[in-house]
Design a binder for these strands. Structure first.
Lengths: 389, 389
DNA sequence: CGCATTTATGATGGAGTCCACCATTAAGGT
DNA sequence: ACCTTAATGGTGGACTCCATCATAAATGCG
C-alpha cells in the first residue's frame, strides 16, 4: 500500500534527477537548460550534469540553438526518439499487420499481409515472420534495435501473454507467440488482446484522447470489448476483462444472424457485404433495414449498458469494421443508452481505422519501456541507448 | 505517463529515506536497526538518522529491547499508531455507525444508533453528530486528533463526495455531508458509496484478503455492488461504478417481489423476516422456497456474470443482510456463474458483518493518509505526528 | 560602429547526505 | 573468567546539490 519500499542512495538521487530531466524532455519537447531547471525544480548546474550524462548515454541530443530571442541563445536539448525502435503487431483473423515506430511512438513503417481464419498455425506464424522482416527492412531497422515488441491477438490472452482461447482463428489457442517472436528479436515481447490495444490506441491517439475512462466496442463479424480505466487498459485477474459478449443475454456473436433477418439481400453474399448493404439501406431510409439495425443496436446497447453501469466510463468508442457505418449506429445507440444508464457516457466512432490495434501495440510498448526505465528502481545505473541512425 | 516529474533534493532524499523506514516499520511491525537497514537497503548509519528524525517528530517510538538473542540486544522501534486517529462512518437507511481507529486501522471504539429511511435529513445528521461525539468520547479521542474522516453513504456518491442520488433514504441527495462533518472535525473528510467501502473492507480485512480483484455484492432489501481492481476500489469517471442494479435486465431492486412469490409466509410480515423465513424454509428443503431462492439467484447470477465478464475478478463476495443465509445461496450462485463465465470466479460469503462499511471507511482513511504522507512530494518536510496518549 | 541590455554559460566554494570502517559495548555460552 | 556473537556509535571520505559570480554571446539603439 505504501510506496517507498526502499531507500535512496546519492547515486539513485542523481539517476532520479536524470530521469526527471528525460521525462520533461519527452513530454514537453525540446527544452533549454533554464526551462528544464524550472520544470524539474532543480538548479541549473544539476540539470546540466544530468543532461550531460544523458547525452553520453545516447538518450539526449543537442539541437541547433533556438535563435530569435533577445539575449544569448540558449542550447536546446531533445529526447532522442531514434535511440530505439518499437514493434507493434496486429495478428487478426483476416490480416497480419506490423508497425515499426520510434521511442516516441511515431510510426515509421507499416507492412501488412492478408490471411484467412482457416489457415493453420504454422502458416500464420510464417506470415507474421514475413511481415515483421519486411517492416524492419522497410524502416531500416536492425533486429537488435527493437527494444520491445507487442502483439495484439484475437481471443482470450492471459496475463502471461498466452493465447488461451480464440474462436475466430483456427488452431490458434496455445500458440507460443511470445517465444516465437522473442527468438527472432531478442527483446521483451508482450501479447495482449487486440480490442484492448485498440482501446488504448483510441485513448492515446484517437477519439478518446480527452478521456481516461472508456469502453471500447469492437463491432464487426466478431464482437469484442475492452475497457480503459484511468488511462490504463483493464486486464482483470486473468486477462479476460471485456468478454461481455459471452453473456447469455448479450449474444453479440450472433450479429450476423440479426443482420440476416433483413430480407433485401440475396443469399450467398459474404457477411461483410451483407452488413454493408443493410447499413446502406438503413442510411437510405429503408424500413426493414432500419428495423434490423435497430434490433442489432438494442442488443449492443444492452451489453454496453451493462459494462457502463459496471465501470462508469465517460465515453464509449465504436470501433471495428461496422464502425464505418457509425453514422447509422451512433444515434440509436445513444438513445438506448440514455434509457438505461445512470450517467450516460458519450458515444463516438473510432477514428484510427484498421491500424488501430497495431498503433495500440506501439503505445503499449512505449509505455512499458517507460515503466521499465522510470519504474521503481532498476538495480544498475541508467541503461545506454542504442545509437541508431 | 512518466512518473518523476520533479527532481530531488538532498533534503528530499533524506525525507524519502525516512519514509522508507517508516513504511517498513508500518508493514513489518517492530524492527531493529539492522533489520530496517536490510529492508530499506540503506546503511545502518542512515536508518539511524532517519529513525531519530522520525522519533523526534512523534512517528516512531523505541520499544523495550528484544532480549533472548545471542549478542548485544538490539534496540527495537515501532510505528506510533497512536499518533493520530481515523474516523469511519456508515450512514445507512436503518442505522448510523461510527468507528474510531488508530493509524494502523485498529478499531478502538464503535458507536451506533438506529434510524429509519423516512427520517428527514436534519434528524439523520443529528444522529450522525450524536454517534460521532459518543464514539470520540468513548475512545478518548479529542476532535483535533482525528486526522481524517471517511463516511459511507448509500446511493450514488460522486468523486467530490456529493450524494447525487439515493433511493433508499428520503431527503438525502444533495446533503452537504463533507461540509457538515468538516465543520466539526477540522480534518479532511471523504464521502464514498457504502458498498464500495464494504468491498474494500473485505479486501483488506475480510474474506478477500488474498484477492486483488473482486466483485462485492450487497444483497438485502436493497441491492448494490462494488468492484475492487488491483486492490483499489473502482469509482469510475463519476463515482457510479457498480450500479449494475439499474440495468433493465437485472432488476435487483425487485428482490422483495421475488421472495414474495414464495407463498408460505403470512402477509404483513416485514420484508427482512420474509426473506429469513424463505431462506430458512429453503434450508429445510421446502420445494416452493427453494424455487423462490433459485429464481432470485438466477437474476443475481445474471447481473454478477455481466460484471464478472466485464472486469474478470478472481472472487465474488456476498455481503449485505441476505449474506447471513449465504449457505443457501452460495452453491446455486456458483452453479449459475459456472455456466456463464469464461473464468468463473470463486464465490465466498462476507465475514465482516454489519460493521463492514465503517471498517472499510477506516481502511480508506488510513490509506488516504498514507498516500498523503508518502505520495509524490509534499512541499515541506515531514509533518509532525500528534502526541496522543 | 560601439555600447547597454538581455540571457545563458561555466567554475568555485559551501553545505548536506550517505556509506564503509573501526573500536566499543553488552549479552549468552563454555 | 573467557570467548563468541551481534549491535552500537563515531570518524573520515566521497559524492551530490545549490548559490553565487564572472564571463560569453546574442539583440537593439544611439
Amino acid at each position: 500500500m505504501t510506496l517507498p519500499v526502499t531507500g535512496g542512495d546519492l547515486q539513485r538521487l542523481r539517476r532520479h534527477n536524470a530521469l526527471a530531466a528525460l521525462s520533461a524532455l519527452r513530454s514537453a519537447g525540446p527544452l533549454t537548460l533554464t526551462q528544464l531547471a524550472e520544470r524539474a525544480d532543480l538548479a541549473r548546474a544539476t540539470v546540466k550534469a544530468a543532461v550531460d550524462d544523458l547525452t553520453g548515454l545516447g538518450w539526449v541530443a543537442e539541437l541547433d540553438p533556438s535563435g530569435g530571442e533577445k539575449g544569448r541563445p540558449a542550447r536546446r536539448y531533445r529526447f532522442r526518439a531514434e535511440a530505439g525502435r518499437v514493434l507493434g503487431l496486429d495478428i487478426g483473423a483476416h490480416k497480419v499487420l506490423a508497425v515499426v515506430a520510434d521511442l516516441d511512438g511515431a510510426v515509421l513503417h507499416i507492412t501488412r499481409e492478408p490471411v484467412t481464419p482457416e489457415q493453420p498455425r504454422a502458416e500464420r506464424l510464417a506470415a507474421v515472420d514475413r511481415v515483421v522482416d519486411a517492416c524492419l527492412a522497410g524502416s531500416g531497422t536492425a533486429a537488435c534495435d527493437v527494444r520491445i515488441a507487442v502483439a495484439g491477438s484475437t481471443g482470450h490472452v492471459d496475463l502471461e501473454g498466452r493465447v488461451v482461447a480464440s474462436r475466430a482463428i483456427r488452431d490458434w489457442p496455445g500458440v507460443p507467440l511470445a517465444e516465437h517472436l522473442g527468438a527472432r528479436l531478442r527483446c521483451p515481447v508482450l501479447v495482449d488482446n487486440d480490442s484492448r490495444l485498440a482501446a488504448l490506441a483510441e485513448c492515446r491517439r484517437g477519439v478518446a484522447r480527452d478521456a481516461g475512462n472508456l469502453v471500447f466496442l469492437h463491432i464487426g463479424r466478431r464482437a469484442g470489448a475492452a475497457i480503459v480505466l484511468d488511462g490504463v487498459p483493464l486486464r482483470g485477474a486473468g486477462g479476460a476483462a471485456g468478454e461481455i459478449g459471452l453473456h447469455p443475454l448479450f449474444n453479440l456473436g450472433h450479429v450476423g444472424d440479426l443482420l440476416h433477418a433483413f430480407p433485401a439481400v440475396e443469399p450467398g453474399t459474404p457477411p461483410d457485404a451483407v452488413a454493408a448493404a443493410v447499413f446502406e439501406a438503413a442510411r437510405g431510409g429503408d424500413a426493414a433495414a432500419r428495423g434490423a439495425v435497430l434490433r442489432y443496436v438494442k442488443v449492443l446497447a444492452l451489453a454496453t449498458a451493462a459494462m457502463a453501469l459496471t465501470v462508469d466510463p465517460e465515453l464509449v468508442v465504436l470501433g471495428g469494421g461496422f464502425s464505418r457505418s457509425a453514422d447509422v449506429l451512433l444515434e440509436p445507440l445513444r438513445g438506448e443508452l440514455e434509457t438505461m444508464c445512470l450517467r450516460t457516457p458519450q458515444v463516438r466512432a473510432s477514428v484510427l481505422g484498421d491500424e488501430c490495434v497495431a498503433v495500440g501495440a506501439v503505445c503499449q510498448g512505449v509505455e512499458h519501456l517507460s515503466a521499465m526505465l522510470f519504474g521503481p528502481e532498476r538495480g544498475g545505473p541508467l541503461p545506454a541507448a542504442s545509437p541508431v541512425q
